[in-house]
């Protein structure tokens, strides 16, 4: 067990190294001189040279590469070019808001997705199955910003049920805070529901034809117990895999959702960095995302063992 965990963790290192190298190369592909791009055409030669020295652009590429890797290893992702604060600090400030949103979305996705998937699988080719398949395909087809804008227009602007500007600063009561969170969380959560439902349905269909389900039925196990104890438990592995793989999509969708609903978070941070051409902030964000994705991938692999005792740690 311990050696499996260790080996899995060690395997993450070369992957991380390749990703860091790709990010390093990508950032250096910015057309023209990065310092010139940041400071604009009017910049004096002295200030250009100063910024180049600050960014380490006056060093040979291999020196830049090594110091880049060393800095990442030390947890130093550099300073934002526009605010001067460290990237970690910038991200740390908006992260709670993004985590709150994505956690609410995952909750909604599992709350609706699992039962709907089970119901669809049990009524296979019946009308519940048919309707939920079509609805989930529509859910999967929505780009997050399209569904977000439509929800904003209908529920916030036309019907006035929710505030147009979500969690936009200031002191709010808890109820107001929840009202601001509701629409963006529903937007993300309903899209995720479509994913979870599809996977749950497929996984349940696979399990329901197994012999041990028939045996359990023959023994007189009731339908609730059959689904909860026998079928769903064994469907959890593919579901966990997909929820783990979905993390990347969820982050991308939450960026768009935060922009639409004007919530503080990674989305607005990225948009701001794009608009001010804050390359160090963008680079830092990419590194953080890469680390998160690799961490989630590794954790998903490790989680198999907790659900399925048959997974061999070899």
């Amino acid at each position: 067990m311990t050696s499996f965990v260790l080996r899995r963790l060690l395997f993450a290192i070369p992957t991380l190294l390749v990703m860091l190298t790709a990010i390093f190369v990508l950032v250096r592909m910015v057309p023209g001189d990065a310092a010139q791009v940041v400071l604009g055409d009017q910049a004096s030669a002295a200030s250009l040279a100063a910024l180049r020295a600050k960014l380490g652009l006056d060093q040979p590429v291999y020196v830049q590469y090594v110091s880049f890797l060393l800095n990442v290893a030390r947890g130093d992702l550099g300073q934002s070019l526009s605010s001067g604060r460290s990237v970690i600090e910038e991200v740390g400030q908006v992260l709670p808001s993004t985590i709150e949103l994505t956690a609410a979305a995952i909750g909604i996705g599992l709350l609706f997705g699992l039962p709907l998937g089970v119901a669809a699988a049990l009524s296979r080719n019946g009308w519940i199955d048919y309707v939920s398949r079509v609805v989930s395909l529509i859910g999967l087809s929505f780009p997050a910003f399209v569904s977000g804008i439509l929800m904003l227009i209908v529920f916030a602007i036309q019907l006035g049920w929710f505030p147009v500007l979500g969690g936009s600063g200031g002191r709010q009561s808890f109820a107001e805070h929840l009202r601001g969170l509701a629409l963006p969380a529903l937007n993300l959560g309903l899209i995720m529901t479509a994913y979870v439902m599809r996977v749950t349905r497929a996984a349940m269909l696979g399990v329901l034809t197994e012999d041990y389900i028939r045996t359990a039925r023959a023994k007189g196990v009731g339908p609730v117990r059959l689904v909860a104890r026998h079928a769903l438990r064994n469907s959890l592995i593919p579901i966990i895999t997909v929820v783990g793989l979905y993390f990347g999509t969820l982050i991308g969708n939450s960026v768009l959702t935060e922009i639409i609903f004007n919530r503080p978070g990674l989305g607005k941070l990225i948009l701001g960095a794009l608009n001010s051409r804050d390359y160090t902030l963008l680079q830092g964000l990419m590194i953080i995302f890469a680390i998160c994705v690799i961490a989630v991938n590794t954790l998903t692999d490790l989680a198999y063992g907790l659900v399925d005792p048959r997974v061999k740690y070899s």
Binding site: F11, P14, T15, V18, M19, L26, V27, M29, V30, P31, L245, F247, G248, T249, I251, G252, N253, V255, L256, I270, L274, Y279, L282, M286, F289, A290, V293, I294, V296, N297
Partner: peptide
């Protein structure tokens, strides 16, 4: 193995963010 490891990360990396970063860097 190495190619697949990198592709796995690319697959898990948020599509939108990957596209966004590349488009932002290239112009």
């Amino acid at each position: 193995q190495i190619v697949m490891g990198v592709l796995d990360v690319m697959l898990a990396f948020p599509t939108l963010l990957l596209g966004l970063m590349i488009a932002a860097m290239l112009g």
